[in-house]
Nucleic acid binder design. Structure first.
Lengths: 155, 155
DNA sequence: GATCTAGATGAAACCGGCTTGCAATTGCGA
DNA sequence: TCGCAATTGCAAGCCGGTTTCATCTAGATC
């Protein structure tokens, strides 16, 4: 599920900055959009559209699910938000952060491991020399076997 | 969507070999399973469960969709089949082949590029040294920008 | 401040991919 | 050949996500 349109990342750190981005594109700053952005800023990690629409479980103000999807897609197009797919559940959305990172998931035990920007760059450089692709690994996790499971025979 | 259970690859090249694998596990060789395996052998590349259930569009005998999914999942557990997710559509299933490979998809123009086993091994070795993971890239494609799109400014 | 209008919202229905429940069927060992 | 558990097909259901459309509202214009 590659995003329909890829856009340059745009790091926003506060609600006013985010709303300025909207206005600079001639888009409206509605109560719903403000709520969604505030929820994203308040969230501690990537959250599902449903959780966001519920106002992080009631902690902040929410909106209906289709609107959440519409706005998340918009924010993503503007480069303020990215979404990841980890596991079988829904996609998880988060504001674009300064430090890029990615996840690796063990297919056998489910262990989740985070790769730093430096580690990613080494891998990316290997892909670049293989086929010229400028890869990022932020949308899908890297799948495989963690060190512990790789040592054991296949179940 | 990592597979629920990872299993060692088991390359089968013919229908008899595949049925022997089933029998060796105490599983039944039903007409439906034989049909599914013959369709997979006849398919020219990864196919969706729906296309498989239709008997590759009527060319061979098919079965109902839930049975197709059940059997594909079984074959995957036995290591004979793997499935990939490329683009937004359904997962695509194929018999495990001798030559491992993976895909890279450009997020902007959609270009699909195949990575050889040797190229993959170089990338995998980089991941291994980063976090000890034994990565494979056969379930999700590697996403990024192809050489051509990476050169142009973000749209 | 009142008016106007395109852009945004919410409610409901819809969609595709996949799974589950269950009665009917069938492979295959005895 | 018989018996029964594994397997099947059908129908319904589930879940993540999208579309439709009438209503509402941000914000430009007067």
């Amino acid at each position: 599920m590659p995003s329909a349109s890829y856009s340059a990342p745009r790091v926003v750190t506060g609600i006013d900055e985010a709303m300025a981005v909207l206005r600079s594109q001639g888009l409206r700053v509605s109560a719903t959009r403000r709520a969604a952005l505030e929820a994203l800023l308040a969230a501690e990690g990537p959250v599902s559209a449903e959780y966001l629409a519920s106002g992080l479980g009631g902690r902040v103000s929410g909106c209906d699910l289709p609107s959440a999807y519409r706005n998340l897609e918009l924010f993503e197009r503007l480069g303020m938000v990215r979404h990841v797919h980890i596991g079988h559940g829904p996609g998880l959305y988060a504001l674009v952060a300064g430090d890029e990172h990615a996840y690796a998931v063990c297919e056998r035990c489910g262990e989740l491991s985070r790769l730093s920007a430096a580690q990613l760059e080494a891998i990316r450089s290997e892909v670049r020399s293989a086929n010229g692709f400028e890869a990022h690994f932020s949308h899908f996790p890297i799948l495989g076997l963690c060190a512990a499971c790789a040592g054991k025979p296949a179940g």
